[in-house]
């Protein structure tokens, strides 16, 4: 088990290097220059070309690409992601100060998707072919088709403005987490439900379930003790991917709900061509994502004794 984990950690390094290279190249291939963009966005009028050149020099934009990349990667290896061009603050600090808002949202969104999706899938599997099954599956397709932007706005209008149960914005209190998590969770619950359903149906047909029935186990006990643990394994394996979905979804959700998160930061950084901020943030998020997947793999190995005790 130890060896398995060590091996997986070592595998992370080439993945992250590749991510850093790709994001660096894309950012530099995109049109635009941070200094010009910054001034254009200010709509304040003409800046003298000398001033502009000075600014670019002060921002460190004139070094050759290779040098810039080397600064980025060597810094990243020691935990220094450089300074944001626009904010002039250390990138790592900027990310960390916003990270808990995003991670909170992603985790609670994941939790919501499981809390809604797993029972829905189980219900559909239990009444397979019946009208409950059809309703559950329709709900799951609905969830997958609704844009999270629209759902978020609807939730705000119903629960925040009309009913006043939850705030429409902000990222600092617990109850400001409810609506955004639900928006994200409902969308992804569909995928979880479908997977749970098919997994449960498959498990129900397994020989050991037949043995369980032959032993005289009640349906409830059979499901809870014998079926669930097996049926959840495929759901657990996609938890890592789901977390990635959540991270992606936080970009839109953070804007709709005015949450101070990393997603929003990255989007505005891309539009202002803030190289260090985009590169640093994407690398950071990639690391988080890869780590989460590693943890999920470890959980999966622990859940399934056949892998844990390996053959």
């Amino acid at each position: 088990m130890q060896l398995y984990v060590m091996g997986r950690i070592v595998q992370l390094i080439p993945v992250l290097l590749l991510v850093s290279l790709i994001v660096f190249l894309i950012m530099h291939a995109l049109p635009g220059d941070p200094a010009t963009l910054m001034l254009a966005g200010a709509e304040g009028g003409m800046t003298s070309p000398e001033r502009l050149a000075e600014l670019r020099e002060q921002m460190g934009l004139n070094d050759p690409l290779v040098v810039q990349y080397w600064h980025f990667v060597s810094g990243a290896a020691t935990g220094d992601l450089g300074n944001s061009i626009r904010f002039r603050e250390p990138v790592l600090q900027m990310i960390l100060s916003r990270l808990d808002s995003t991670v909170e949202l992603a985790l609670f969104g994941l939790l919501c998707s499981l809390v809604i999706g797993v029972p829905l899938g189980l219900l559909a599997a239990a009444r397979q072919g019946g009208w409950i099954d059809a309703v559950c599956m329709s709900l799951s397709y609905l969830g997958a088709s609704i844009p999270v932007y629209w759902l978020g706005l609807m939730m705000i209008f119903v629960f925040a403005f009309n009913l006043g149960w939850f705030p429409a914005s902000g990222g600092t209190s617990w109850n400001s987490l409810v609506l955004p998590s639900l928006s994200l969770g409902l969308i992804n619950a569909g995928l979880v439900a479908r997977l749970m359903r098919s997994s449960m149906i498959e498990v129900n047909g397994e020989d050991y379930m037949r043995t369980g029935r032959a032993k005289g186990l009640s349906p409830g006990l059979l499901l809870r003790r014998h079926g669930l643990k097996n049926a959840l394994i495929p759901v657990v394996t996609i938890l890592g991917l789901q977390f990635g979905n959540m991270l992606a979804g936080t970009v839109v959700t953070e804007t709709v709900f005015s949450r101070p998160g990393v997603g929003r930061l990255v989007v505005s950084a891309i539009l202002s061509k803030d190289y260090p901020l985009v590169q640093g943030a994407v690398l950071f998020l990639a690391t988080v994502y890869v780590t989460v997947n590693l943890i999920v793999d470890i959980i999966y190995a622990w859940l399934d004794p056949r892998i844990r005790y390996g053959r």
Binding site: Y208, G212, A214
Partner: peptide, 21 residues
């Protein structure tokens, strides 16, 4: 009755036993 009065064993013990318990 099942398991108590009438017991049953099956052909393939690998698939007939629950792998995660």
């Amino acid at each position: 009755i099942r398991g108590r009065q009438i017991g049953m064993i099956f052909q393939d013990p690998m698939t007939s036993l629950n792998p995660v318990l």
